[in-house]
């Protein structure tokens, strides 16, 4: 029975996860005298609160998230951007740093361009983006490779305090920007190093449930290097 502590069990929609003494948190609801899960995920209980951390599904936009999106359309008020969520996101003209003439919009961000952008407002059926940042980390992507992953695996790709990402960056000599929506931008001097980083990221995503993931990733990187 000691195993149970380690292996967190997966729950399914409708499954009873707690009694009514608990308060229903994210992706749970009260049903009669019980609290049930409304998503496929893992249960997390604190003192009085019970919530479910989803394991799958499309990206749900949240305030403050840095995401990578593709410009789909240009209007006089701003840019329509696909950030992979259930809603179209919008980047208003005023949220673009510097002054942009309407006639110049296309040259600033054109259709098909990818942006590292930030969510600054989430409405009922809308998402607003900004490109304004103090450290200039929000920008148009000019070169590199995009790796698309299940957004729920993003924390594992980043690792504790960014440890996993640092590991990949150092091993492949690339720059990596992780969008919370599951789009990851890798850029390096050579496309080969980008593809190596892509392989490592894909390996992590496939093995997120494995124990000792960091060691496994280190071994995977070593094997990749040996193959060369």
């Amino acid at each position: 029975m000691t195993e149970k502590k380690e292996k967190r069990e997966i729950v399914i929609p409708g499954e009873i996860i707690a009694s009514e003494e608990f308060l229903p948190g994210d992706w749970t609801m009260k049903q009669g005298k019980n609290i049930i899960s409304t998503r496929l995920g893992i249960v997390e209980k604190s003192d009085k609160l019970v919530k479910v951390i989803p394991l799958s599904g499309v990206y749900i936009p949240r305030y403050g998230n840095v995401v990578i999106g593709e410009v789909k359309d240009i209007t006089t008020a701003g840019w329509v951007v696909d950030v992979k969520g259930p809603y179209q996101a919008f980047l208003p003209l005023r949220e673009c740093p510097g002054f942009v003439e309407v006639s110049e919009m296309e040259n600033v961000y054109g259709i098909g361009d990818l942006l590292v952008t930030k969510i600054f407002n989430v409405g009922r059926t809308s998402v607003d983006l900004t490109m304004k940042s103090r450290d200039r980390s929000l920008n148009k992507i000019r070169e590199g490779t995009i790796v698309t992953v299940n957004p729920h695996r993003v924390p594992r790709v980043i690792g504790k305090e960014g440890s996993m990402i640092t590991l990949i960056k150092n091993a492949t000599k690339t720059n990596i920007t992780v969008g919370q929506n599951g789009l990851i931008w890798v850029s390096g001097e050579k496309v080969e190093s980008e593809l190596a980083a892509k392989k490592i990221i894909e390996f992590i995503v496939e093995n997120t449930t494995a124990d000792g993931l960091t060691e496994k990733v280190e071994k995977f990187i070593k094997d990749l290097e040996d193959k060369k």
């Binding site: 593709e70 098909g112 361009d113 990818l114 992507i141 000019r142 070169e143 590199g144 490779t145 995009i146 496309v191 080969e192 980008e194 593809l195």
Partner: peptide, 18 residues
């Protein structure tokens, strides 16, 4: 994506696979 296409093109044009 457009930039992935660019990378793919670069690598394929060098006679290598993605």
């Amino acid at each position: 994506y457009k930039i992935t296409k660019k990378s793919a093109l670069k690598i394929l044009a060098a006679g290598k696979r993605f």
